[in-house]
């Protein structure tokens, strides 16, 4: 018989086995993965998150989509694209793009910042379940931000006539980098830190 503290039980992020935490670094007894060290996981998450936020700025300032039509070159930013779609009456598509490219990334930044701060300072301590749900939601919803990048790629591949051509813009790269690093930040974040 081993006496264990229920609070010392942690879940392996790779294989989901339950492990007994032995302090700083624990190796999973089932798959052998290193269950990350709490301090470095927070630092990593911050680093990835800040990179993502920085990349998100050019992603919104530069054009996402460049339309070349009979010699006229016109670039549209993410927000500009949403506005155009809205004005044309494609409300559902405008809403999807708005959610995927603006609401989800910004929400993810805010939630991760909130969770990372709450690791250090006791904010919202009594609402344990909510924070886990919040984290789970950001994990589940995060990849959907890639929609806009894929849409641009599809349009660029589909429309390249002599007179009318669509090309991806600089923002596509910036946005893809931003999504990539947000996903890394969410993965790096150690769920056990939610207290």
């Amino acid at each position: 018989m081993i006496e264990i503290d229920e609070n010392a039980l942690i879940r392996c992020p790779v294989c989901e086995a339950v492990n007994i935490s032995t302090g700083d670094e624990t190796l999973c007894h089932r798959c052998g993965s290193r269950i990350s060290n709490q301090k470095s996981s927070t630092q990593k998450a911050w680093a990835y998150l800040i990179t993502a936020i920085i990349a998100y700025i050019p992603a919104n300032l530069y054009p996402m989509l460049i339309t070349k039509q009979f010699g006229m070159i016109e670039g549209s930013t993410i927000l500009g694209g949403v506005v155009t779609l809205w004005e044309h009456g494609s409300y559902p598509i405008a809403a999807i793009i708005f959610f995927a490219s603006i609401v989800i990334p910004v929400m993810k930044f805010l939630i991760l910042i909130y969770l990372l701060i709450s690791v250090k300072y006791p904010i919202g301590k009594d609402k344990k379940v909510d924070k886990h749900k919040l984290y789970y939601m950001t994990e589940a919803v995060g990849p959907w931000s890639m929609i806009d990048v894929f849409v641009v790629a599809i349009l660029a591949a589909l429309i390249h006539l002599a007179n009318v051509e669509i090309v991806a813009g600089t923002a596509a790269t910036a946005f893809a980098i931003s999504v990539f690093f947000t996903l890394l930040a969410a993965h790096a974040f150690d769920e056990r830190l939610i207290k």
Binding site: V14, L85, S90, P92, I147, I154, L183
Partner: peptide, 28 residues
């Protein structure tokens, strides 16, 4: 294989691509 699977799974985005195709088509 199981460990590799867990690492790759979150990065597989076929479903998102499918929706993107629809969004792109509606734009056209």
């Amino acid at each position: 294989l199981l460990i590799l699977f867990s690492h790759i799974k979150p990065w597989s985005m076929s479903d998102i691509f499918l929706i993107s195709v629809l969004v792109a088509l509606v734009k056209l």
